[in-house]
Amino acid sequence: MTNTIATYDDLAAFQRSETTLKGPVAIVLVEDTVEVQSTLDHLVKLGFATLVVMARPSDVIELPDTVPTIRVGWRNDRVGAVPAAVNAVAENGPGLWMHYCFNAEYLFFPFCETRRVGEMLAFHTEERRFSMLTYVVDLYGADVGNAVDRDGAHLDASGYYASVRPDPENHNHPKERQLDFHGGLRWRFEEHVPAHRRRIDRIGLFRAKPGVALLDDHTFTEPEYNTYSCPWHNNLTAAICSFRAAKALTTNAGSRHDIDSFMWFRSEPFRWHSQQLLDLGLMEPGQWF
């Protein structure tokens, strides 16, 4: 028996509701039926208190029976669908920490094997941080015909870089403590990825605040939410290990016939452990030890 506390036909019905959320909240944006179950199981293991599953009503999904779960009818079929979904949940839970991801994506943070997400976010809040930069680390199978292969997942061990983020209002200076990060499959196969989708940085964890909204480019309307650290020292960062790019590259008509393999000399097996991501510099423990 599932622990579903509410089901809504669409975002409008959810927004009209008075459903009480308990944080931290995980929002799962279901685009297809690939690895939905493993994504939900991973979030439960990390310690999220509430799951909000955004999916097509026709999708058959086995919801967890141990965590309160809300299901909302949704599909990613138009520009702005993602921020609309995330912002709808944020409006229902002001003050709560939230994480959003797509199916076949898995959040990792430093020491997540022994510490729960609530502990990490409590420390981050004590440092007066209300958002956390996450790097989207592309995962892929060794066989391009099986791009989403959890048992045989690989990642790129190098090829990541950052560039300054221009400030349209001040052409002489870049934005303070904001960078555009690149790498992974989006970098190696950039000819198949639109320029505005090549970044791998995402503010994947944030504290909901009235008047602060997610934008379509995975940044927020509040500039401080988009920073990688405070002005005084390095802060925690996390990683979202994602099969999403591999799925897209092997299904989109413009790329699926041009890619014979995702493997290259800097591919290495993914060990599903935060220490590997720390060793590769794909997340930062900051002052949390």
Rank of each mutant, 00 (worst) to 15 (best):
M1S: 15
T2N: 11
N3H: 12
N3M: 06
T7R: 14
D9W: 02
L11G: 06
T19A: 11
G23I: 10
V30A: 03
V30Q: 06
D32M: 05
E35N: 15
Q37F: 10
H42S: 07
H42G: 03
V44R: 02
V44Q: 02
T50V: 10
L51K: 07
L51Y: 06
R56A: 14
P57L: 08
V60I: 12
L63P: 06
V67M: 04
N76M: 13
V79K: 12
V79L: 10
E91C: 02
E91K: 00
P94A: 05
L96M: 09
M98P: 11
C101W: 06
A104M: 10
E105K: 01
E105Q: 15
Y106N: 04
L107I: 05
F108I: 11
F108V: 13
F109W: 09
F109Y: 15
E113I: 07
R115E: 03
R116P: 00
E119K: 04
V137T: 06
D138V: 03
A142V: 14
A142M: 13
N146K: 05
R150H: 09
R150M: 11
A153K: 04
H154F: 13
D156C: 05
A157W: 03
S158I: 08
S163M: 12
R165V: 01
P166Y: 03
D167V: 10
N172E: 15
P174T: 00
E176N: 15
Q178I: 08
G184N: 12
L185W: 02
F189N: 04
V193G: 04
D201I: 11
R202L: 04
I203W: 04
G204C: 09
G204F: 12
L205R: 01
F206K: 02
F206D: 08
A208E: 00
P210Q: 09
G211D: 06
G211T: 10
V212M: 09
A213V: 09
H218W: 14
T219K: 00
F220C: 11
T221C: 02
E222P: 03
E224C: 07
T227C: 09
H233L: 05
H233R: 07
N234V: 09
N235W: 06
T237S: 12
A238D: 02
I240Y: 00
A245M: 11
A248R: 13
L249D: 04
T251A: 13
A253Y: 12
S255Q: 01
I259S: 08
M263N: 08
P269M: 03
S274V: 02
Q275I: 03
L277T: 14
D279I: 01
L280F: 02
Q287Y: 11
W288Y: 08
